[in-house]
Design a binder for these strands. Sequence first.
RNA 1: UCCGCGAUAGCUCAAUGGUGGAGCAUUCGGCUGUUAACCGAAGGGUUGCAAGUUCGAGUCCUGCUCGCGGAGCCA
Length: 465
Amino acid sequence: MAYDFVTVKDLLAGGEHYQDKNLKLTGWVRTSRTSKNFGFIELNDGSCFKNLQVVFEDTLSNFEEIDKVSIGSSLEIKVTWIKSLGDKQPFELKVDEISINGFASLDNPIQKKRHSFEFLRTISHLRPRTNTYMATFRVRSIVSFAIHKFFQERGFVYVHTPIITSTDAEGAGEMFRVTTLDMNNLPKDGTGAIDYSQELFGKPSFLTVSGQLAVEAFCFAFRNVYTFGPTFRAENSNTARHANEFWMIEPEIAFADLEDDMRLAQDMMKYILNEVMTQAPDELDFFNKFVDTDLLSRLDNAVNSDFATITYTEAIEYLKKSGHQFEYPVEWGENLQTEHERYITEEIFKKPVFVIDYPKEIKAFYMKLNSDNKTVRAMDLLVPGVGEIIGGSQREENYEVLHQKMLATGIIPEDYEWYQDIRKFGSFPHAGFGLGLERAVMYLTGMKNIRDVIPYPRTPNNILF
RNA sequence: UCCGCGAUAGCUCAAUGGUGGAGCAUUCGGCUGUUAACCGAAGGGUUGCAAGUUCGAGUCCUGCUCGCGGAGCCA
């Protein structure tokens, strides 16, 4: 008899279209329960979050074998779709044949019990088979594609900025060094210093900490552009929201100011929220039930309200007036501490908040100076549960002002000649921001640790796989 | 990197300085509709590593390793 292959996703969506059809399913055992003469297997085939339960009886020729099937085993199941006699579910599958493709060893660490995220991190190669991680990584995929869709629909050009760069200290953090030299036998010059001319590139090179500067040059040609790629920071950060390898999205828009930049950021956030809510409702329900019971109401609230905007100066006033006792003092000119940011977005506004116009001393050299000469056109988007998710600014488009700011902040202008150069040939107002993909996924899922939203996370002391 | 907490069975956790236990998982048996199934039994341990104090250390001291939470750096 011929059996047509069908996915669990299609089967669940297909309804009576499949009535009386002979169907073949393939997938993995999530859990099984058996009695003397029959048993249940919950099969997940990767096509969707939901499992499909099949009932098998001792009429199967290999009932003894299936009765003992282990969690994780891969199966091929031939069934006939029949309309359900009861009213609990619309259909039942009459199992004609089950064959085991690969029997999972009994020491499989994934068992039908709750495991801690800490433990599952030690088995990154197995954890995608669990509900939480299957949901997380499907959301990650949907978010990634939604971001491309958002920008492509608006005519943005996707630019692949380099992963290996020669500019040290792009201003965004410690860098990993890329080298072809023999670390046990480093070539030295006459003075005893390392002879970098013997590097493959003829000089020191590093992994990128941001594609922003490189993509700005393309903004000068294509108007609206974006990068979407891996980013590397060598900081010894030990927090739930920092990783040494992560993915970042950096749009750059032409003839635009900070207000345009914030509008773009808000539109993008709402767009990906909508995409995930429509494409992954089962996953979001799961997160709302088991990971973060406020998730759905928080996401609904974000989609249906305008994000708030306050200046840094106003934020300081809000915090001072709040009467809340902070561990770190609130003072104009100081960086907002994490506790301050969380208080603003979680307690005062209870929704995403843009904080803009920061003191120039605490922000990067390329940000446009305000007319007050004290603050710059910077914006951070703070969201409940995660904190800073986006950092952006209007860029300093004036060649001379940019050059002076580099000198004032200790950046060597010669190292960035090409970056200043683009201002010489037809400069104009432009702006952009960086969105941390993992932080977006954390916000959308309620997952609290960045190590749980990257397939194989790289953090200090952790590069297991 | 700093502060705090922790590391005991495959997993999640108990154990007053005095014979290391439970639940889940695994194995075996029972059970005709379960859905983290249920009931009964069995197996399972160099208590993270090293060195101390003590008649005696999972427990106390010191060092180290790793993990978690918070902070800084930021996305």
